[in-house]
């Protein structure tokens, strides 16, 4: 794992936001690494630990706590479908199903420990997320950092990411 100088510079700047304790920068450092590499590898955990002068277990504890951090590579476009009540009432389960169908993703292997399913071609991956805080416009989902509300048609949504 090679952390480019540019990325490290960005990370170093982020760390300055926490003048009292470097450890506070764990989340921003991990976010920066995940943004660049797509997920948090074991090496990334070690790198972050070294950067912040922490025992690696203290970083791993954090990485595994948050669903926002992935420990395996997602697709090029990672979809998060809101599963929680208002979106569920608005049809998020159906949305998930149609998105999987349209993106050719098999979710049968999804478990608590492996919440993400990746399509065969690696273009799309998908998982359920808990409440994305747009309950009035469900069903909602995120594709990478893009937010989509009132998603009715899976194909229409995916077409924006077919390149």
């Amino acid at each position: 794992m090679e952390v480019p100088a540019e990325l490290e510079k960005e990370i170093d700047e982020r760390i300055t936001h926490y003048p009292v304790s470097k450890r506070s920068a764990v989340l921003p450092v991990l976010h920066a690494l995940q943004h660049h590499f797509g997920y948090i590898s074991e090496e990334a955990v070690e790198w972050a630990a070294r950067k912040l002068e922490l025992e690696p277990i203290k970083v791993l504890e954090v990485v595994t706590f948050y669903p926002g951090f992935r420990q395996s590579a997602p697709g090029k476009y990672h979809i998060r479908v809101c599963r929680t009540l208002s979106c569920a009432m608005a049809g998020s389960a159906e949305l998930m199903e149609s998105l999987c169908k349209a993106a050719k993703i098999d979710r049968s292997g999804v478990t608590h420990h492996h919440p993400i399913a990746v399509g065969e071609d690696g273009r799309f991956s998908i998982e359920f997320a808990e409440c994305l805080a747009s309950c009035g416009t469900g069903p909602v989902c995120m594709v990478n950092d893009d937010f989509h509300e009132k998603v009715e048609d899976a194909e229409t949504l995916l077409s924006k990411y077919r390149d």
Partner: peptide
Amino acid sequence: IYVHRGAGAY
């Protein structure tokens, strides 16, 4: 003031 992003935890 700094912005600190969480990582998906209620």
